[in-house]
Write a protein that binds this DNA or RNA. Structure first.
Lengths: 116, 116
DNA sequence: CAGAATCCGCTGCGATACTG
DNA sequence: CAGTATCGCAGCGGATTCTG
């Protein structure tokens, strides 16, 4: 009896900062490796690993074009597209509340650094 | 010049599997530490750390009751409630597609393990 | 261009034990 | 009950180099 992937693990995959940004980007149509590299910022290694993981889980469709300069495109699968809206909500939220969070942190740190 | 918290970092906080589960749970009203511990499964240490982080970022409101057996409740703040729906979408999705993902993985592994 | 491979430090995260 | 303290390791993730 093959074990089902626990929701836990699934969440982990789709919820990482990497996956979120990548999936959002790939939902607007196929996107190339290099484009992703510029958008996501981080090491090429991690980008590759995340991409592989998402492909393995059936969230991304990898297409290789056997052209002279190699060309590979990643596109979100239907299953992944179901998440698009929710993912956008998250990224949007993080932008909207960035400042509030910064303040909250400062406040928290001030309250905890000095033993009141 | 205080730096704003980059979206990247924000995503990281709200996007962890812990945070998601915790925030979802805390959105249905105040919830106690032990209840969370049962729900989330994982080490107590990580639960505590995640809780602290969320509190620091202003996503959770921590209330301590000075009763004989200590009692601490965590409640989602308005800012965190904005995420509730999106978070539910994610958890729901992970449950719905658990099986598809498992199959996708097996397929992928089969295609890659043996050099065809 | 799109990776694979190697090296390696940092820390995420679990297990366990102790406390107000 | 709701933590904190300590230990320890696996693996995340960055930097760099090599290739079809």
């Amino acid at each position: 009896m093959k074990d089902v992937v626990p929701p836990r693990e699934l969440l982990d995959r789709i919820a990482g900062k990497w996956a979120i940004e990548i999936l959002v980007a790939a939902s607007d149509g196929p996107i190339r490796f290099t484009e992703l590299e510029r958008l996501v910022e981080g090491s090429r290694r991690m980008l590759t690993m995340t991409l592989r993981g998402l492909e393995r889980d059936g969230l991304l469709q990898r297409t290789v074009y056997a052209t002279v300069p190699p060309k590979v495109e990643y596109a979100a699968t239907p299953m992944a597209l179901e998440l698009h809206e929710a993912l956008l909500t998250l990224t949007d939220w993080s932008v909207r509340h960035g400042e509030s969070v910064t303040k909250s942190r400062e406040s928290y740190d001030a309250r905890h650094a000095a033993a009141s």
